[in-house]
């Protein structure tokens, strides 16, 4: 898996104070960092002599900067996530919403040159943000591992990521940051599946939902659906020495039954769009028009 090198945090703080560096952070991250002497920007303004842009924020902000930072004239991008989950700091992918649709761009030029993690950001997350973020990481690792596009070598690497995830509690623990980056770098080399297909279709259509929260909610029923339609889940987890039952139990901690039940009518309404989503079409098992009733059963199950 290709990941940017990780810079020590002290090195990033020194870099931010260098005259040739611009820092493009969300307002909240800027307040928290409080870097005296840093040159802050909030748009793709061209600045003579600039070499590095440091992007600091959540996944949507990092993707926004990944698409625009070159217009400042800089030649290097360092990405610092304030929450784990998207793995935008490690991937060559950018996702944005346009006309109510999720758009993607996959381009190696989008991958940051370096990434860095600040443990203090973990302490700012609410329990609900933590649950959602952890679900997004698990979804990247599991869907990338099960993807029909994953090579044997990539599956072995993602199996290591899954073992690391099994050891992590669902908590505001900064150890999630580097594992999230690895999971995202891995799925970018294969694909994601139905979890992401559902999240991409429903997030713009169901008020109050978030990408990460939807991933956390749908991961358990999608894994159960996959296991019911193909032996691939059982076979691949056994081949790679993974504890399938243990993984389902951990994923079960992320998915609340009442949230699944509340989303069921939206899944029914938008099922045709879910089937057409590019992520659903690279699910580990075939998602058919008449799979809906079975899937609704998994949403309802305890």
């Amino acid at each position: 898996m290709r990941e940017p090198p990780t810079l020590p945090w002290a090195e990033v703080e020194a870099l931010a104070r260098d005259a040739s560096t611009l820092t493009w952070a969300t307002p909240r991250a800027r307040r928290q960092l409080g870097w005296a002497g840093a040159r802050w920007i909030d748009s793709e303004v061209a600045v003579p002599g600039v070499q590095t842009v440091i992007a600091v924020g959540g996944g949507a902000h990092l993707d926004h900067v990944k698409l625009r930072w070159r217009q400042t004239g800089a030649s290097r991008l360092t990405a610092v996530p304030t929450v784990w989950g998207s793995g935008a700091e490690a991937s060559p992918v950018a996702v944005w919403t346009e006309d109510g649709q999720k758009r993607f761009k996959l381009d190696e030029a989008l991958r940051p040159h370096a990434m860095a993690f600040c443990d203090a950001f973990a302490a700012t997350l609410s329990p609900e943000q933590v649950r959602a973020a952890c679900g997004d990481v698990w979804a990247h690792a599991l869907e990338g591992f099960l993807s029909p596009l994953a090579s044997d070598a990539l599956r072995s690497e993602l199996a290591e990521v899954l073992r690391a995830l099994e050891a992590l509690p669902i908590a505001a623990d900064p150890r999630w940051f580097p594992v999230s980056a690895r999971a995202s770098a891995g799925q970018a080399e294969s694909s994601v599946g139905l979890v992401h297909g559902l999240a991409h279709v429903l997030e713009p259509r169901v008020p109050g939902t978030s990408h990460a929260g939807l991933c956390a909610t749908f991961l358990l029923p999608v894994l159960r659906f996959n296991a019911s339609t193909s032996e691939k889940w059982a076979t691949l987890t056994a081949e790679h020495g993974l504890d399938a039952a243990g993984i389902l139990a951990r994923v079960g901690e992320l998915s609340r039954r009442e949230a699944r039940q509340a989303l069921a009518p939206h899944v029914s309404t938008h099922w045709k769009l879910v089937l057409r989503d590019p992520c659903s079409r690279t699910n580990s098992t075939l998602v058919r028009p008449d799979s809906l009733s079975a899937f609704l059963g998994f949403l309802e199950a305890p």
């Binding site: 029909p148 596009l149 339609t229 193909s230 079409r281 690279t282 699910n283 098992t285 075939l286």
Partner: peptide
Amino acid sequence: LGVVSLAVGVHQ
């Protein structure tokens, strides 16, 4: 993507 889906479906 259809090629991928078809391969998955044929296998299943």
